[in-house]
Amino acid sequence: MKIRKDGWVVAAGLMALSAASLAAPPTAAMLSNACAGCHGTLGASAGPSMPSLAGQSKVSIVESMNGFKSGARPSTIMGRLAKGYSDAEIDAMGEFFSKQKPVMPVQTLDPAKIAKGQAIHEKSCARCHVEDGKEPKDNSPIVASQWLKYLQVQMDDYASGKRKMLDNKAEKMKPLSRDDLDAVAHFYSSIK
């Protein structure tokens, strides 16, 4: 038996047999790079319906992953993936993506909807989505500079009741029409 300098205890016999047992456990980058085929290199998505993770708050990423994992948050594919990671691994990935530089997606937005969305944001959303959605607050995610299509899908999930909300969010969101929600999505997508 030998204790390696990083604290791993390895049987000497095993080490000689299996080169893999010499490797350190997966790093944050090792874990996170595997997500980038879908979410873009370093989490900067190039696909309109796939959310960018680069620069998202760690708290929000961890909360999303835990919600996917438990099923509390609906998903098409993330639930199946999130179940493959431990709490520590999810934490490491949240940290990794939160440190990456956000990239503003290039997309066409409707100026009239942006203006309408801004008014709704200021009235109903600004208390939690602070700084026009550019800053996270508690576990509210950064919603600014996200892909419009992705925000629209999320709004749909909220409106249809598929994605559950906290009471304080529901109170603000329930009175809004689908058009209102679409306008707010345009507004957040437009924020640099």
């Binding site: 980038a36 085929g37 879908c38 979410h39 873009g40 290199t41 998505s45 190039a46 696909g47 309109p48 319906s49 796939m50 098409t76 594919i77 299509k149 899908v153």
Partner: peptide, 19 residues
């Protein structure tokens, strides 16, 4: 079968080819 997955699949291709 899912329409939403077809929408995500588009972005899957876009992201992986962009990578």
């Amino acid at each position: 079968l899912s329409e939403l997955e077809a929408i995500y699949a588009e972005s899957w291709l876009k992201n992986i080819l962009t990578e």
